[in-house]
């Protein structure tokens, strides 16, 4: 393997996990942009996405067929299931606290996170679960640089979803309402926007993205566990902060960048310093640009 091929392979490795981070980071940043809540239960929604996929695959196993059809069905299940879950969490845990201090909502989010984790542990067991491979185990690129079909799916689906999200935010009525609410909820309400509906919509979309991320993650790494949401959620949150929390392109950039940093740091420096390298860069970014790479300086709301 030449150094050039090695570098290309490391970039591909980094972008794969980075794309998943980006999908989850979008959910953190959307919710933060609208209600200034760091939704700590978001990592758990991601984890549940992979478990919803697993359930579909187990069903596929009992019926006895595999393949792309089931992957699509699992994608739909994770999307719909997680957006419903996001709606439910918002309705049950966050909406009653809309007038409460921000800290109460934050603590509630941590509570929801524990609840979902333990519910999955009780329902699916504490052990690692094996996610069957639905796509053929082939490698594209022969000997040196290799890409698997699943990596292709991860790149494709994430790109599609990110473009789609931009379309929703800048091209639809819901998107316009979301941007208005993010700027000033009170003024938005006075303009006749149903703020509650907008918030619910934000949770649904953000959770759907995390669900898809969870499914892709589960299929790609083929093992899932009930506490996967913690570490991956933390990384995605970091990505959102690095890109500028509240900023959609920032979350995408932050996710891809974090994936690349981890990949290159582990590949060229040392794998045991992988997280240290990623977080040192986060600190440097925040020292130089306290609002993140693409974040704008916002005036504090009174």
């Amino acid at each position: 393997m030449t150094p050039g091929e090695l570098f290309l392979q490391q970039i591909l490795n980094g972008l794969t996990i980075g794309a998943v981070y980006a999908l989850i980071a979008l959910g953190y940043t959307m919710v933060y942009g609208i209600i200034q809540l760091i939704n700590f239960a978001h990592g758990e929604v991601f984890m549940l996405g992979s478990y919803m996929g697993l359930t579909v695959f187990l069903l596929a196993g009992t019926i006895g067929s595999g393949g792309v059809g089931w992957l699509l069905l699992a994608l739909c299940t994770a999307t719909v299931g997680c957006s419903l879950l996001g709606l439910a969490v918002e309705r049950v845990a966050y909406r009653p606290l809309r007038q409460a201090p921000k800290l109460s909502v934050l603590i509630t989010a941590i509570g929801v996170s524990f609840f979902l984790q333990n519910a999955v542990m009780l329902g699916y067991g504490a052990q690692d679960r094996y996610v069957p491979a639905l796509l053929p185990a082939v490698r594209w690129g022969g000997g040196a640089v290799t890409v698997t079909p699943m990596q292709g799916v991860i790149f494709g689906v994430s790109l599609l979803l990110m473009v789609g999200l931009q379309g929703i935010v800048y091209g639809t009525r819901l998107g316009r309402n979301m941007r208005a609410t993010a700027q000033d909820p009170l003024a938005a309400r006075l303009m006749g926007i149903s703020v509650d509906q907008v918030i619910a919509g934000t949770f649904a979309i953000g959770s759907a993205l995390a669900g898809v991320g969870g499914l892709l993650f589960g299929v790609y790494y083929s093992t899932i566990n009930f506490h996967d949401g913690y570490l991956v959620g933390l990384k995605a949150f970091t990505a959102a902060v690095m890109g500028g929390i509240g900023n959609l392109p920032g979350a995408m950039l932050g996710g891809l960048l974090l994936g690349l940093l981890e990949g290159l740091g582990a590949g060229y420096i040392s794998s045991q310093w992988k997280n240290v390298i990623a977080f040192v860069v986060l600190i440097l970014v925040l020292l130089l640009r306290p609002h993140g790479l693409l974040g704008e300086r916002l005036s504090e709301r009174a």
Binding site: N13, G14, T16, I17, D228, L231, G267, K274
Partner: peptide, 22 residues
């Protein structure tokens, strides 16, 4: 001789490095 972190899932960077060393 390198370490990996328990609980992580993505070890492709270090494996790619190993592949380069043959």
């Amino acid at each position: 001789h390198e370490g990996i972190t328990q609980g992580e899932k993505d070890f492709t960077p270090v494996l790619t490095k190993i592949k380069g060393l043959n």
